[in-house]
Amino acid sequence: MTTDTPVLARRLEAILLIVDEPQSLVSLAAAVGAPVPAVRQAVEGLVADYDGETGGPRRGFELREVGGGWRLYVREEHDDLVAEFVGAQTPSRLSQAALETLAVIAYKQPVTRGQVASIRAVNVDSVVRTLVARGLVTEVGQDAETGAIRYGTTDALLTHLGINAIEELPHISPLLDDGADGFDEELVR
């Protein structure tokens, strides 16, 4: 358990650098093994440091409290620059979860996140956000009954796949196992 403020602040920075979602003071305290009041003080010190209030430069990022938690964000004045930079980068490969989610959306579109989640049996919120950010999936309307956003594929996906229309995707049924393997022929009758 550490309460040495400079060491604690550096440990918090390491955690905050890698998180995708805002982290509460309690979860940060548990992660670094320090009491919540010490973590609160260290977080306040980091905010002041990044804002240039401690004699150093104002950083291009900030530590912001959002939704009851803390996370590093790009400063608003650099949003356009960062968006341009990220857009110019060669997209990285999609994860297995993203590929599976993209396949469900492609074959079942228009489909809601809830419908995709029920098919995949996992939460797909962040994966859908990633696919939207990469321009492979887009919002195509709302479900009339639930008001949930429906998603479909984009022309960019068609380009990446080298097809002209989503109807050119291979039919899925010939690729699926019929479930007969492993059954004794006499028992099936």
Score class of each variant (00 low, 15 high):
D49Q: 12
R40K: 15
G45Q: 07
P57T: 08
L63T: 02
G45N: 12
Y50S: 02
E53H: 09
A30T: 12
E62Q: 14
D49C: 04
A29N: 07
A38Q: 10
A34F: 09
G56A: 12
L72V: 15
A34V: 14
R59E: 14
A30R: 07
P57C: 00
F61E: 08
G55K: 05
L72P: 05
G56E: 14
A38L: 06
Y73A: 09
G55N: 09
P37Q: 01
G55L: 05
E44K: 09
P57I: 08
A30L: 07
R64M: 05
V47R: 12
V43Y: 00
R58F: 04
E62H: 07
V36I: 15
V66N: 02
V74L: 07
G67I: 06
R40Y: 15
D51I: 04
E65T: 09
G52F: 07
D49P: 06
R58M: 10
Q41C: 01
G55Q: 05
V32K: 00
L72D: 00
D51S: 11
L63F: 14
E44N: 13
V43L: 02
A31R: 10
W70G: 03
A31H: 04
E44G: 14
R71S: 12
G52A: 06
R59G: 09
L72N: 07
E65V: 10
R40C: 05
A38M: 07
L63R: 06
G45S: 09
F61W: 08
G68T: 07
L46E: 10
L46N: 01
E62L: 12
P35C: 02
L72R: 14
W70N: 03
P35V: 04
V47S: 01
G55C: 08
V32G: 00
G55R: 02
R71T: 15
T54G: 02
G60Y: 11
G45D: 12
Q41G: 04
T54N: 09
E62W: 04
A31K: 06
G33T: 07
T54P: 06
G45C: 06
A29M: 07
L46D: 03
R64D: 09
G68I: 01
E44F: 10
Y50K: 01
A29D: 06
D51A: 15
F61R: 09
P57Q: 04
V74D: 11
T54C: 05
V66D: 08
P37A: 01
E62D: 14
R59D: 14
T54H: 04
E53K: 13
A30Q: 11
D49Y: 12
A31L: 08
V32E: 00
V74K: 01
A38T: 13
V39W: 08
E62F: 04
A29G: 15
A48H: 13
G68Y: 12
R40L: 13
G56M: 03
